[in-house]
């Protein structure tokens, strides 16, 4: 396989998803470029999670094509799919940590299954991922039921980046976190993107997350991607739902906060 010539690591074309008579997506197109953080927003029930599940292959679309890292996933052989899946990390909404395994064992599952490696070395890499995800070292020995909501998300993130994926899929990563935890998580994603060169596909309801870390935003509405562009262009898009979403009281205050943070950053550029 050659390096994908196109800049797009995710290419969705004409995607159609339906459950019985209910059509969730119709003629949906979406491109995600290498190295960017793409935020996906949409009302409840607009099919954000279904889109994510279709892209990572958990949900077989009724029609259309999904290309991941240059490979057409709907027609790929099992071996090809497995290879691509290894290069994707997924953070599910509720973490989806294996409850019978400790956090370190959770992180080691993909390493153990895909590579032959001495246990001590694997433990070191697991500790590294756990630390990269911003958890204290002693968290590795804990079980998911002993963790708080924010720690579960971080542990799940540690598992998602266990194999150094090219693409990271995040399903509402900051939902249920307090504002401080959510802001820290946003920064963590930003840091990981910078240092590991990740492409991030991010579903969120959190306007602060959109304003602080997303390079581009895709709005899911009317069964397709209504608009997909940088935030300031999306904000100005002429659609009642988009206008209400970004110009509502919450949207405006998040925008305000983001501008404030940016100007503070401009005054003291040595901060980061």
């Amino acid at each position: 396989m050659n390096a994908p010539a196109a800049e797009n690591v995710i290419e969705v074309r004409n995607l159609r998803n339906q459950f019985g008579a209910q059509v969730v997506h119709d003629h949906l197109d979406l491109d995600v470029r290498r190295g960017e953080i793409m935020g996906v927003v949409g009302g409840s029930g607009s099919g954000k999670s279904v889109l994510l599940r279709s892209i990572i292959g958990l949900n077989r679309p009724a029609a259309g094509s999904v290309k991941l890292l240059g490979v057409e996933m709907t027609t790929a052989s099992d071996a090809q799919r497995a290879q691509i899946e290894q290069r994707c990390g997924v953070l599910f909404q509720n973490g989806a940590l294996f409850s019978s395994l400790s956090v370190a064992d959770n992180v080691m599952v993909p390493m153990r299954e895909h590579f032959r490696m001495p246990a001590a070395l694997m433990q070191r890499f697991a500790d590294l991922k756990i630390a990269l995800a911003g958890l204290p070292t002693n968290a590795g020995a804990k079980y998911p039921s002993e963790l708080s909501g924010g720690m579960v998300k971080r542990a799940a993130l540690a598992r998602a980046i266990a194999l150094d994926p090219d693409i990271l899929f995040l399903d509402e990563p900051t939902a249920g976190l307090d504002p401080i935890g959510a802001a820290a998580f946003d920064q963590l994603i930003l840091t990981l993107r910078e240092s590991l060169g990740l492409t991030v596909f991010l579903i969120t309801h959190d306007l602060d997350t959109l304003y602080t870390i997303c390079d581009r935003v895709a709005v899911l509405s009317q069964k397709r991607v209504l608009v997909c562009d940088t935030l300031d262009k999306v904000e100005r898009y002429d659609d009642p739902w988009v206008q209400e979403y970004f110009q509502g009281p919450r949207g405006r205050s998040a925008e305000c906060a983001a501008h404030k943070a940016q100007s503070a950053h401009a005054i003291a550029p040595g901060g980061a």
């Binding site: 433990q123 070191r124 500790d127 590294l128 630390a131 990269l132 070292t137 840091t191 990981l192 910078e194 240092s195 590991l196």
Partner: peptide
């Protein structure tokens, strides 16, 4: 990034 976070096992 790796050097910063890695702690003694």
């Amino acid at each position: 990034a790796v050097a910063k976070v890695d702690l003694a096992p």
